[in-house]
Design a binder for these strands. Structure first.
Length: 498
RNA sequence: GCGAUUGUAGUCUAGUCUGGUAGGACUCUGCCUUGCCAAGGCAGUGGCCCGGGUUCAAAUCCCGGCAAUCGCACCA
């Protein structure tokens, strides 16, 4: 499926489309529609139940999307997100000034301002790499963060948060005190982050407003030992830094490739989430290790979780696993002048952070791409049943008073615990087809026999399954249980958490 | 941000070069027919991305904007 087909499907079937579409849209901003919002909710619930609810030490919190300037100065975002760009006056190509100067061997101080950089460009007689011109336009700071003025007049400076992680770091100390002062402690946030991307691209891949689902695990590196025996023998597809793709066992990652035990454990945990729970096909998921310049400076170990997404042209990042050391809390200790180190067994410990980070929008796009199957006969979104926006469609086979009554009866039985789509327009085949395209796993049809007291089939309905079109007759009284157990998500059946 | 390509009903698309009543498919609505896999018949709704210019006349040509795709750059 290519990018145009996917966006057409998304618009047609109610998943997502450009924000402010009737005004021509806005680059990098998307709205979720009636189906997309349900789809997103399913993904978030599944993610939470797998990564957070399975561990009594992990908790969901929520944080402000607007933050004052100070925490983002000390997190490093205000300077690190703040690139000085310089444009060639002749060919109008823009470059990052620090990169250009470094390539020319010029020395420039960290966080240098525009004036210093313009002077350095002149002093070093820099040439445009493309057209060799020496006429550069005045450099200008470009901040990836969207700035705010909180309050009247110019107001207090602030930013929309560039990552949800900061909400977890800023709340760590209070949560640590509330939650019995123990490590490890996990704080999860699902929410929006904002980046003023220069060039949003590829649908939901790079957006200016994005949804992140992140789990920040605060731990004492001296003592944290997840039970590695649960993941022993698991084979992972890994592309180590500057290496060829390989299949490596968890043990080998630890013993032969220097990956920390807790890190390898979480790689396996994530691997099971995608391959065993969501059923991303073997070979379509790998871990890509980042190193050198591509790795964020504070990360000790950094791997992207990538999935082969046809409409994005290959393997693309849908999540990340980052061992951030104690960078975040150390920085916020300095910035806030509050000591965020904690006392564990009489010893001061600056907690380390392992970050499990997922792009929700990207994951939803990926699911559509990977699981949408089209042939001459039909189009089916074969997502896992627990991800489906609607659990079931409910149809009357014919127009008939008795049947309509039975439909209402069935609907009342199901609606409390299942999301049911009622449809009475068009042929039965057309109604099945509509449900197939939004991934509804079951369609319930009430026919004459269902409503006919004389019939042996009285009070039964047919349940048609999305993937193989097979049908079974189910008693109305057993229907709720029948469907519920098939659309439920049980993380304990996927991974041995305890 | 630079460059190339593109923008026509809800979706896909013909028409644009060479200016002259915007056509089709699917969808959607109603009726008839049928009743377990996108059936058929009849009828109907709905469109040239936005703004300006040239012209008797602009979907078509020109300028500006917005948006999308691809490439470059960017992506702590």
């Amino acid at each position: 499926m290519n990018i145009d087909d996917l966006t057409a499907l998304a618009k047609q079937r109610g998943f997502f489309w450009p924000a402010a579409e009737i005004y021509g849209g806005a680059s990098g901003l998307y709205d979720y529609g009636n189906i997309g919002a349900l789809f997103k909710r399913r993904w978030e619930i599944v993610w939470l139940s797998y990564f957070v609810d399975t561990n009594p030490d992990y908790h969901l919190i929520d944080g402000a999307n607007m933050l004052p300037e100070s925490p983002l100065i000390h997190s490093g975002h205000a300077s690190r997100f703040n690139d000085v760009l310089v444009g060639c006056g002749k060919c109008k190509t823009y470059y990052r000034a620090d990169v250009l100067l470094a390539d020319a061997g010029a020395k420039i101080s960290e966080g240098a301002g525009s004036e210093e950089i313009d002077k350095a460009i002149r002093d070093n007689k820099l040439k445009c790499p493309k057209c060799k011109s020496i006429q550069f336009m005045p450099s200008k700071a470009f901040n990836m963060m969207l700035d705010l003025h909180l309050g009247p007049d110019k107001g207090e400076s602030g930013y929309l948060r560039p990552e949800t992680a900061q909400s977890a770091y800023l709340n760590f100390f209070r949560e640590f005190n509330i939650l019995r002062k123990q490590l490890p402690l996990g704080l999860a946030v699902i929410g929006r982050a904002y980046r003023n991307e220069i060039s949003p691209r590829q649908g939901l891949y790079r957006m200016r407003e994005l949804i992140q689902a992140e789990l920040q695990i605060f731990f004492d590196p001296a003592t944290w030992k997840p039970d590695i025996s649960k993941v022993r023998g698991r084979k992972l597809n890994v592309v180590l830094y500057k290496k060829e793709p390989a299949v490596i066992t968890v043990e080998d990652l630890i013993t032969k490739h220097n990956i920390p035990e807790f890190y390898a454990y979480h790689m396996a945990l994530i691997d099971a989430f995608y391959k065993d729970a969501i059923k991303v096909p073997e070979g379509k998921l790998h871990f890509l290790e980042k190193g050198g310049d591509e790795k964020a400076f504070y990360n000790k170990v950094h791997m992207d979780i990538e999935v082969d997404v046809e409409s994005w042209g290959g393997f693309k990042e849908v999540g990340g696993l980052h061992y951030r050391g104690d960078y975040d809390l150390t920085q916020h200790s300095k910035g806030s002048k509050q000591d965020l180190a904690v006392l564990i067994d009489g010893k001061k410990v600056m907690p380390n952070v392992l970050e499990l980070s997922f792009g929700v929008d990207r994951n939803l796009w990926m699911l559509i791409d990977v699981f949408f199957k089209k042939d001459e006969a039909r189009s089916v979104l074969k997502i896992p049943p627990f991800m489906a926006p609607y659990h079931a469609g409910l149809f009357a086979l014919q127009k008939d008073e008795g049947i309509d009554k039975m439909v209402e009866n069935v609907h009342n039985k199901l609606r409390k615990s299942l999301k049911v789509f009622l449809d009475d327009s068009g042929s039965i085949g057309k109604r099945y087809a509509r449900m197939d395209e939004i991934g509804t796993p079951f369609c319930i049809t009430v026919d004459f026999d269902s409503a006919n007291k004389q019939s042996k089939e009285y009070n039964t309905v047919t349940v048609r399954s999305r993937d193989d079109k097979s049908q079974v007759r189910v008693k109305v009284d057993e229907l709720e249980h029948f469907i519920k157990e098939k659309v439920a998500f049980d993380p304990y059946k996927v991974f041995e958490f305890h």
